[in-house]
Design a protein around this nucleic acid. Structure first.
Lengths: 159, 159
DNA sequence: CCGTAGGTTCAGAACTTATTGAACGTTCGA
DNA sequence: TCGAACGTTCAATAAGTTCTGAACCTACGG
């Protein structure tokens, strides 16, 4: 196996972690690389070269990163196309997005329907789970606000 | 396509939702079924019959559910083996488990190493993400405690 | 108006993962 | 001790997903 630079290896490791969430390797590699590359913006060509991916894979993977709100396009001065960079607030956007929790809450609600409604016997588990997800859904935005307040006090910058 | 009972359909839907998190279909079906079945405990044989899965799939899938803390074995009085049921506090256990966040925080920490440490230029994104995950890791247990307090006030039971 | 760099799409190859089903233990009742 | 029910494991197969590469757009510079 060929020698990998620390940075390249980091991209691979990120792919493993993200892969654990069911995401495609290319997606994780791209994100990992964009987190540590210098400069922080990279063109498709650069990404393909750095990560040993085809143009097609970079195109598909970056679109996924864009639509999931983790990366964005930035114009490059003396350059034909665009470059990509991770959004400074990427993780927060993801965390604040309550969609994930809503889906689960709705699954529990549907479960209650299936078993015969709120008051049917043996629905305690379902009700608790539904309430739990509803709780998290409600609280998460506030938690994120608190982080922003705390963090803003320490370091005030933006990308 | 054959007619599916509401309950069976629910199991399929659960599989889709869980699948979105990268989990195998069989796992989602089993969990979905166990959430709504009556009685709430089911033997391997029952699960296989209800969901149209092989004994092998049930065995593998249930072990996954067990090790991830969502289901547990319960003895069955006049029966050779054991049955399974979802743990009453399944979701809370999952949510309270900070492992998921730790993995991400560690990825960000490694990223900082790779780019040359805390004080290297252009590390703002990485530092913020690391701090964010550390924050969530710290706060999540407290959030769960708050839910338990709130919920305990409304409905006091256990399975 | 053409040539070229950059970007996207998509069919098929390569690969990965889930599921089955058969073989193998184990435990219990008789 | 035997037979039967039950559960587990694992090799092979089926199913599904990702990645590539070539064809195809588009926009800009000259």
């Amino acid at each position: 196996m060929s020698e990998l630079s620390d940075q390249r290896r980091y991209a691979e490791d990120a792919a493993v972690v993200l892969g654990g969430l069911g995401l495609p390797p290319a997606y994780g590699k791209l994100l990992g690389w964009l987190l540590i590359c210098d400069p922080p913006w990279q063109t498709s060509t650069q990404l393909a070269a750095a990560l040993g991916l085809s143009k097609g894979s970079v195109s598909t993977g970056m679109r996924l990163l864009e639509t999931s709100g983790l990366a964005r396009r930035v114009p490059v001065p003396g350059h034909r196309g665009h470059a990509y960079e991770v959004r400074p607030d990427a993780v927060i956007r993801i965390a604040a997005d309550a969609t994930k929790f809503r889906v689960f809450r709705e699954l529990m609600e549907r479960g209650l329907d299936v078993v015969g409604g709120e008051d049917a016997p043996g629905t305690e588990r379902l009700r608790m789970m539904r309430d739990f997800y509803a709780f998290i859904e409600r609280e998460m935005p506030q938690l994120v606000e608190r982080f922003e307040a705390e963090y803003g006090a320490k370091g005030d910058r933006d990308g």
